[in-house]
Design a protein around this nucleic acid. Structure first.
Lengths: 213, 213
DNA sequence: GCTCCAAGTGGACAGTGACAACATTTGGTG
DNA sequence: CACCAAATGTTGTCACTGTCCACTTGGAGC
C-alpha cells in the first residue's frame, strides 16, 4: 500500500462526501480531496474525467443516503389499519426528506446540484432497475410513489389525482427544505420549523384526500 | 467620461445581472464583469467589498424582478366577484413565480444564492418598509401574504390556516421551480410542466379552502 | 492655481481545474 | 521465472480566478 492506493476512487468519493458535509458543495475542491486522501493532485483524473464526474458520484451516494433515511422512518411505522398506515407513511416520508436535507445540507445540495449544470445533457434519471434487490436502492421519488400508490389502493386518493399528488408532495418538501437551507427562511429555529412542517403537511394531506375521513 | 466612469456600481450590477442571465450564478466572475463593463479588474473593489457583495446587489435586483413579475400578472386579473378574484389571484401568483424562475434561471438562482453562504450571518430579510411607495417594492413573500389575507377576508381561508398556507404555497412553487430547474424534473417539456403546475395548484387550493365552494 | 482625496489602474500572490510527460507498480503471457 | 504492457500516481505547467498592494489620475473645493 505504498504507490498504489488499493481502492482510490471509493476513497476519493468518501473524502469528497466528507468535505461536502463540512464545507458544502463548493468546498469540494479536487486538490483538497486529493490532499486529504493522502494522494497527489491529479491522481483523481485516473478515476474521474473531471470534477463534475466526482460530484456526480458523490451525488449518487447522497441520493442513496436520502432514500435510506426515508426508508428507515417508513419501516418504523407500525400501524395495522391500512388507511391510517398509508396516511402516516406519507407524513413520515415528508418528515424524513426535510430532516435529511437539514441535517446534511452539503450532501443534499450535491444530490441536486448535478442536474443541468450546462444547458446540454438532460442527465436522465435512471430508476436503477437492478433485479438483485427487492425494494432497496429505490430512489426517493420511487419511495414517494409507493406511498401514493398505497393511498390509492386504500381508497383515500383518487387515481387521477395520483400523479399531481406526487409532484405536489415532492415540490412541497423540497421547497420547504431549500427555503430553510438557502432561502429567506434560513434562520428559523428547529422547533418552529417542525411545527410549520407538520401544519403544512396536514394541509397537503387535506388537498389529497379531502377533509378528515 | 474617460477615467471616472460616472456611475460604475450600477453599471457593474447591470453587467453582472446580464452575465447571470446568460451563464448562471457561477458565471458571474468579477474579472469578466469588469471586462464587459470596460473597466479594469479591481475597479469593482471601490464599490463592493468583495464578490459576495456584488452578488447580493444582483440578488436584490433579481428579487425585485420576481416581485414585479408577480405584480404584473396580479394586476391583469379583472374579476369582480371577491371570492373568485381571490382564488384567481393565488393561482396567478403561483404561475408568475414559476414562470419567472424558469424564464430567468440565472437571476432566480442568484436571488436565493445569497442566504447562508456561511454558517454565520443569518442574513436577515428586511421587508423594505419604505413609506414612500404604496405597495411597490414589496417582496414576493409579502405579495403572497396579501393574497392569502384576501382569502381570509373573503371567508375562504380559516385564519388559523393562514400562516401554514403561506409556507405551503411558497414551498410548493419554489420546490416545483427548483426541481424543474436543477432537479430530476429538468428535461420536462413546457406544456407538460404547465399541466403539472395547474393540477398541483388545484390540489393546493383544495387543501386551503376545501372542496369547490 | 494648488492641493487633496475618491475613483480607477497595474502588478503580484495563492489557489484552482485541467493537461502533458514521466515514474512506478501489477498482472498476464511467454 | 522473466518480461512487458497497461493501469495507476506523480511532478511540472498553464490559464484563470479573487483579493491585496502600491501607484496614478482627475475633478472639487479652498
Amino acid at each position: 500500500m505504498s504507490y498504489h492506493h488499493g481502492n482510490l476512487r471509493a476513497a476519493l468519493i468518501e473524502t469528497a462526501a466528507q468535505l461536502a458535509r463540512s464545507k458544502g458543495a463548493d468546498g469540494v475542491v479536487l486538490r483538497e480531496v486529493a490532499r486529504q486522501t493522502g494522494v497527489s493532485h491529479n491522481a483523481a483524473y485516473r478515476h474521474f474525467a473531471d470534477r463534475e464526474e466526482l460530484m456526480t458520484a458523490v451525488a449518487d451516494q447522497a441520493m442513496a443516503g436520502l432514500a435510506a433515511a426515508m426508508r428507515r422512518r417508513m419501516s418504523a411505522v407500525d400501524v395495522p389499519d391500512p388507511r391510517e398506515r398509508a396516511v402516516l407513511l406519507l407524513s413520515e416520508v415528508g418528515h424524513a426528506y426535510v430532516e435529511f436535507a437539514l441535517a446534511e445540507p452539503g450532501l443534499f445540495e450535491i444530490a441536486f446540484a448535478v442536474y443541468s449544470v450546462d444547458p446540454s445533457a438532460p442527465a436522465e434519471i435512471e430508476p436503477a432497475a437492478d433485479p438483485s434487490s427487492t425494494s432497496d436502492d429505490l430512489g426517493p421519488y420511487d419511495l414517494l410513489g409507493q406511498v401514493l400508490d398505497d393511498l390509492v389502493t386504500v381508497g383515500l386518493l383518487t387515481p387521477e389525482r395520483r400523479d399531481p399528488a406526487q409532484i405536489l408532495c415532492w415540490s412541497t418538501v423540497h421547497g420547504f427544505s431549500v427555503l430553510h437551507l438557502r432561502g429567506p427562511l434560513y434562520g428559523v429555529p428547529a422547533t418552529e420549523r417542525e411545527q410549520s412542517l407538520t401544519a403544512m403537511l396536514a394541509l397537503v394531506l387535506r388537498g389529497l384526500v379531502g377533509d378528515l375521513d
